[in-house]
Structures are given as C-alpha cells and as structure tokens.
Nucleic acid binder design. Structure first.
Lengths: 251, 251
DNA sequence: GATCGTCTAAAGGTCAGACCCAAAGTACCA
DNA sequence: TGGTACTTTGGGTCTGACCTTTAGACGATC
C-alpha cells in the first residue's frame, strides 16, 4: 500500500471550513429570504443574539455587517435601534455592477452593448405595463431635459428618463441593471465635451418619440425607437471616446 | 439672538455620521479601484493596519469584512495569509442579483423577460468575438446535453452552454447577469416535471443551431435563433408553471 | 533520500469585558 | 405648557487575551 494507491483510491474534494460569522449570517439570511422574518421587523439586539447563539459579540456583529452589506438588514443606532430586515432592492445590484464596471476598467463598449440589449426590452415592456403615474414621470423628465441649462441638469434628467422607462417596465431585474448602467454612463459622459447642443436636441426628440409610443401602448414602436436612440447615442459616444483617446496619444 | 434666528440664519443639510469601519473600507476600496493596490497583492496584516490607522483591530476587521463581501479582497488564514486584493468578478453581481430574485419573490416572468432581452445580444456578440477555445466549450456542452442521463446532468450542461455563450460574447456585464439568471432558472426548473424528453430534444436542436451560427460567425442568425429558442423555452416554462399553480389551487 | 512527524512563527478568528455615543422616553421644574 | 436634565436601550469602538490555521524549517525514521 503505497501513497500512490491511496491517492487514486480515495478522492476527496477540497473542503471549506466555514467561519462562525458566516454560519450565523447564512442562517439569518435564509430565514429572511424564506419570509420567516418579515420585512421591517427588528432582529433581536446584538447582546440578545449573543445569549441565544453562544457566540461572542464580535462574531455576531460581523454576521450583521455581512447582511448589511448584502442589503438584507438596515442598522440603526440609538435606543429603539437595531437591525431591521429589509429585502434587497435594485440598489444593491446596481452597487455591485458599479464595482464590476469600475474595478475591471470595463470598456465603455460593454456598457453600451448592454444598454442596447436591455433598453429596447424595457421600452417594450413599459409600453404594456406602464401606469399613468409612471408616464407622468417620463413626461416631466422630458420637460426638464428640454429646459436644462447646465450639463449636470441635462445628464440627471436624462438618467431619470431612462431609469423611469425601466421602472415602468415593472421588471425589477432590468431596473436594477439599468440603474447601474445609468450611473456608469453618467460619470463617463460627464467630463467630456460630448454633450453639445446637437446631441441634446437629438436626445430630446428621441425621448419624446419613445415616450409617445409608450403613452399609446405601442410596444413595437417603443422598442424600435428606443433601439435607434440607444444605438446612435452609443455610436456618438464611442466616436468621441476615440477622438479623446487619439488626442491623448498625441500628447 | 433667539433659537429661531440661528435656525433661519444658518442652514445646514442633514449630515450622516459615517462609521469608522466604513471610512476605512471606503478608503481602501477607492485605492483598489484606482489601481493603487494591484490585483493579487496583499494588504498589510490586520495588526499592521491597526498601527497605521490608529484604529482598533475590531474596526479594521469590520472594514475588511465589508470589502470581502463586496468581492474586493479575498482573505486567507494561516501564515502568509492576509487580505489579497481581487477585482470583483461576475460572481458578486450574480450573488446580488440572486438575492434580489429570491428576496423579492420575483415573478418567473421577469427572469424570462430579462433572458429574452439579454441572450440574443450575447449570441450576436459571441458570433463576432468568440475564440476557438470558447467555441469548443459550447460544442462540448452540447455533447454532454445529448448524452445526459439524469435531470441534474442535463440542467448543469444546459447552464454551462448558456453561460458559455455569454462568456464568448466577451462582455463582462452581460456575463454577470447571465450567470445570475442561469442560477435562478436552474433552481426553479429543477423540481418540476417540466424537462421531459420533448423539451430536451428541442433544446438540443436549438443549441446546435445557435452554436453553428456562432461557429460560422453569422451574427444575425445567432441572434435570431437564440431569440426563438429562449422565447419558446420561456413560453413552455411559464405554461408548466401555470399548470402547477392550478394543481396547487385544487389541493 | 524520500517521507513523515514536530516545532515555530505569522496571520486571521474568536472571545470577554469595558466604555463611548446616539436616540427615545420620562420626570421634573419654571 | 414647554423645555431641560436624566435614564434607558441600543449600536460603535477599544483593549487585550487566547485559539486555530498554515507555511516553512528541522529532524527522525524507514
């Protein structure tokens, strides 16, 4: 019986030894997701959890911190404070996507490609599912865009409109992704000489026509127009991006 | 000088008092994202950070825990262990999307809607950007699907293929979202009598035809065939879902 | 001379206990 | 009545100790 025999005979997969805080976090997470802890209700105070779990306060706190970062609890200080259950929203998705985009120095192309995939679908669904209130939000954003004086105002209203369409689609996943993409686009198009009068006029017109299709519940038209809008916007942005890159090269 | 005077004279916006651990986490996060800390390099040991920051070890550890959950560092124990910088991958996006889907009890419809938006785009990009190796992965997955005996095997190979297409698109954002959606679909279609022989045969054929288009770099065909495949799969899944719901109602 | 223990140092993981700060309630006084 | 000071309940931070895991070095054994 040599070592080689044992190696081939018995195979074990690598095992991970979980940390105490992870175990606790997982336990609480499952209970939250299963609905056992209702949204808005308060978890026991830290010291109480210490008694119940026989773990140290450090461990309990690390578990709560994990859940907080994952967006499953919100922690308030002070009397009547504590950890309150809150189901994760689009924000946490947007946050992690933002990290991915920033951290990987993701090519602007990828962001635009994703937009071109997602936004037409949002528009199509919005045309079907929109409420009157959501339509109002879109129209108000359009007015703000038309009246915008500063670049910031324009970009913010622009984001509001695009996110508004996503929300009107009544699809939380698309909404989450769209929020993240908007943030990324906002920051990348902010400090460039890209948004000139022509671009703004084009965007304004495109938004209006998509909004009209959504208003009239014309799903195909909404998707088609959104496709055109996003595509041309992406092409323009990439072109400027190239110009800037070339200018940088020449320095 | 009454209290009212001071109130109207000086206006301050509400301020949030950040926690020490958050401050440290943010500081380190920014440095990682800015590239100051290269991927794979080790952060100073906890006790060293305590000396540098004059914070307690508890605080330092909470900060590291935050970064770990966000996928920005990986912590190894033991000698030569420590916190190693690692740029966030698709996994963290997938994780948070999974929480969203599970936590909000998101309608299966939403998942399928999102797939219908994303997968054709993945296929189109894959047809353009694929490498020979990635194509090989797809073909191997197809073989596994055809040969699969158990439901688990089939589903796993199915997920591998879909994720493989996303990876071949060379778009990290789409890939991240696709991984999350696949996981969700995997778990929801697992315990149902949905995947019968007919469905499997259909899926096999559809996968083959999409793979062929990707192989031949025919972007339009890839997108078109993928659209059809995802759409019919979604329709079938929803139909079964309805049947199950009805059966449950009758109990 | 390869293999297996053993030891040691470095690093994270856990613990117990103290104290600080914030917020909400309460009692008391002008 | 209304404001002020105290109390209570919660999270936030600090300290210092000890446990556990791992890499590497050093022998001891077959």
């Amino acid at each position: 019986m040599t070592a080689e025999d044992t190696q081939t005979a018995i195979r074990l997969s690598p095992m991970a030894v979980p940390k105490a805080s992870d175990v606790l976090a997982t336990e609480i997470r499952e209970r939250i997701l299963s609905g056992e802890f209702a949204e808005g209700s308060a978890l026991p105070p830290e010291r109480e959890l210490v008694l119940q779990t026989k773990m140290s306060r450090t461990t309990v706190r690390e578990a709560l911190r994990i859940l907080e970062v994952q967006g499953l609890v919100r922690i308030k200080t002070g009397r009547a404070g504590g950890a309150f259950v809150c189901k994760p929203g689009e924000d946490s998705v947007a946050d992690s996507l933002e990290l991915l985009i920033r951290g990987r120095q993701i090519r602007l192309t990828s962001v635009h490609e994703t937009r071109e995939a997602i936004e037409p679908a949002c528009a199509r669904l919005a045309a079907v599912n929109r409420t009157a209130g959501e339509l109002g939000v879109l129209e108000k954003a359009n007015e703000t865009i038309a009246a915008a004086k500063t670049l910031e105002e324009f970009l913010q209203a622009n984001v509001d409109w695009h996110v508004g369409v996503a929300i009107a689609s009544h699809n939380e996943i698309l909404t989450g992704v769209m929020i993240a993409l908007s943030r990324a686009i906002y920051t990348t198009t902010n400090n460039e000489g890209f948004v000139n009068d022509e671009v703004r006029a084009l965007a304004t017109r495109a938004h209006r026509s998509v909004t009209r299709a959504i208003k009239e519940k014309d799903a195909d038209a909404a998707a088609r127009r959104m496709t055109r809008h996003v595509h041309s916007y992406a092409a323009a942005a990439l072109e400027v991006d190239d110009r800037v890159a070339i200018a940088v090269d020449q320095d």
